[in-house]
Amino acid sequence: MAAHPIVTGGLCHWFGEGEARKQALFDIDLEIEAGKLTVLVGASGSGKTTLLTLIGCLRRVQTGSVRLLGTELAGAEEGLLIACRRRLGFIFQAHNLHDSLTAMQNVRMGLDVHGRAAAENWQEAARHILTLLGLEDRLEYLPGNLSGGQKQRVAIARALVGNPDIVFADEPTAALDKASAMNAVDLLKRLGAERGTTTLMVTHDSKILDRADRIITMDDGRITGDSG
């Protein structure tokens, strides 16, 4: 597929109803290349999370178009959105791990979603990805017994275990120490080079900005800068 994995056109978004209705995004036109680490920066409230969640099928598109991996998301049925989400990996600011599941089980949730066949060798896959993130001796821990950084790394493992085509990350490194953050970014870049995994990340971490392939700046719901 020659087309870019993410293409948006005239994308606008509003929050609230009636008097309180407020526009958060204005005419976003964006093309993002496959296999690259693209970073979104901008002041608080500039619309980074909103854009990320729209492209990532976590919000319904109101006006404009989002083509994700060749699929138009505007007006898409719930079933189509679910199918799209399965090709994505999400890393959120908060880890959102399930507190009753061990690290291994939490990671497995990222595999089970692809059906029984994909989950058949889940233990091997989960152990492998957790080891890559330096958690080989925390496999059977419940989140309550892990540090904030360790939890975040489990969340990253959960996002990556299903071999997503695109990874969305919203300030994923806030809870991580420098070494772990760099390790995670290296992993994402390596996946980009080896498998063509595209990463779209919101971050202000200057170390990560140095390693980004492209930096998009947002201000007040508009794209104001693009280093690409």
Partner: peptide, 15 residues
């Protein structure tokens, strides 16, 4: 109590 976790599962693609 588990809304965040369920939302995460929903985001991952669980129906």
């Amino acid at each position: 109590d588990h809304m965040r976790e369920y939302a995460t599962f929903k985001a991952i693609g669980y129906p």
